[in-house]
Write a protein that binds this DNA or RNA. Structure first.
Lengths: 255, 255
DNA sequence: TATTTTTAGTATCATTTGTTATTAACAAAT
DNA sequence: ATTTGTTAATAACAAATGATACTAAAAATA
């Protein structure tokens, strides 16, 4: 238990970061929320449970019964090819709600699983519906969050479609840094994350061996060090420069 | 003018296909619509205009003023890297509405442009809003269409992330075939589409030269022939087999 | 602590894919 | 009809990445 806690706690999150529910923190970035709205959102986190790493939260083929709210830790969407190859299509960080919309479906065609240990809450369809009805500001923020998610998927198409290996890996590490920082789970210096090189490979469309080569290069360039369950960012500007990382897509500006 | 018409008319679309507005046809696949609802949807197409090929409908950086409904022809979303490389992140076929949601934004971070000549209608924010309010069945169908679009983007991440060159190109051609067929713009035998090899390359994350190699191979295998502005599907089952193409993601099953 | 299992690191070699250049075919424009 | 630009086809070569195999290091488990 203590061990698990250690894994989950970032080295030094921004002060007060964990007092605020991550979804409140995330959605506040998309528009001011009243105290009542914040309370209602925070209520989604009641009944949260700890889940160990490498476990499925939603399984391909099943009919989703509830959305999943990530409170701590990182999960991902993924699918397997017949060959067994896995492709990760998204990461879910604290504050992310997965999947409000897919609740309309009979059958998921991808799975969602934890990477490291997580704390997650199941959010029933009805809770979401009433939240959307009662609090237009929350509904609006959720819509913008959704837009950000879509932009992110498109950014991933860019990433695997037209960036080199080192650019892809750098871009991914920048994105995770930015997203975790937004909810208090990363500092300027880096973040705790149980990502294996195989995970990175399955995300970036590279082989595990080549990811290893890229990481060695990033280490030698003194940009990033990934060891154990930790990502240390040594030179963020340079890393972002390599990746051509522009954080706009993570925070769509509302009109 | 006659020439343009020729380019736009498919060889032999399914009978009556063009009498129905493509968006009605498309959304009907997601749920039964009343005559009134169909009429309201068809109304979105009034004021449609012809647009030539290789023209932007929405430009990166601009604030979108209206959504765009594609009635004929094919358009795409794309972005450029600093290097000039272009990545296409989605295709838009007749019946596709682009982008209802992005209307909330100040600033697009991708462009939308036509590939060949198109017929498109601008759909003002208000028209969409009232449609959604008045006709819940339409709103539901639009939601499902949106889900299909999201699944499609994820499928593209799979495509560029973990498929070989020939698999990627095959998958793309299968997807276009399926989507165009759903709205009457492709037959079993193929479809008219002004796609250059460079377009294919920008979509699949390959070089134009390699796309040419792949197309030659597909031609020699007697699976596909792409010439001029035409895609001829010679052996659909074999093509789908190569691509591991499963059309489910294009039509999410509602619960 | 000992012992499996997983993950990381590295080397070697094979393969795929990209780059550049050149020509031919085609389409558009004058 | 000529010219100009675009697209397609191909070759020759270079570079990036993948596959396999093996060892070392960590982590998880007993």
């Amino acid at each position: 238990m203590t061990l698990t806690m250690t894994h989950l706690s970032p080295a030094a999150p921004s002060p007060g970061g964990h007092l605020l529910h991550p979804i409140v923190r995330k959605l506040s970035a998309f528009g001011r929320l009243s105290a009542e709205e914040r309370a209602a959102l925070a209520g989604l986190g009641t009944g949260a449970q700890r889940v160990e790493g490498r476990l499925d939260l939603l399984a391909e083929g099943a009919a989703p019964e509830s959305a999943v709210l990530i409170l701590e830790g990182v999960a991902c969407r993924y699918r397997h090819r017949r060959s067994g190859a896995r492709q990760i299509t998204a990461y879910l960080v604290p504050g992310d709600l997965c999947d409000p919309d897919i609740l309309h479906l009979d059958r998921l065609n991808h799975s969602v699983g934890t990477l490291g240990p997580c704390r997650v809450a199941r959010v029933p369809r009805e809770a979401l519906a009433s939240l959307n009805q009662q609090y237009p500001a929350v509904a609006r923020a959720l819509r913008l969050a959704k837009l950000a998610e879509e932009e992110t998927t498109r950014e991933w198409v860019m990433n695997v479609g037209c960036r080199s290996a080192i650019e892809r890996v750098s871009h991914l590490l920048c994105e995770l840094h930015e997203r975790l920082r937004a909810v208090g789970w990363a500092t300027k210096a880096g973040y705790d994350l149980a990502l294996t090189q195989q995970d990175l490979a399955d995300t970036t469309g590279l082989s595990n061996v080549h990811v290893n080569r890229v990481l060695r290069q990033l280490r030698l360039m003194r940009l990033v060090e990934m060891g154990g369950k930790r990502v240390d960012i040594l030179n963020l500007p340079a890393l972002q420069e390599i990746a051509e990382f522009q954080a706009d897509y993570l925070r769509p500006a509302a009109g």
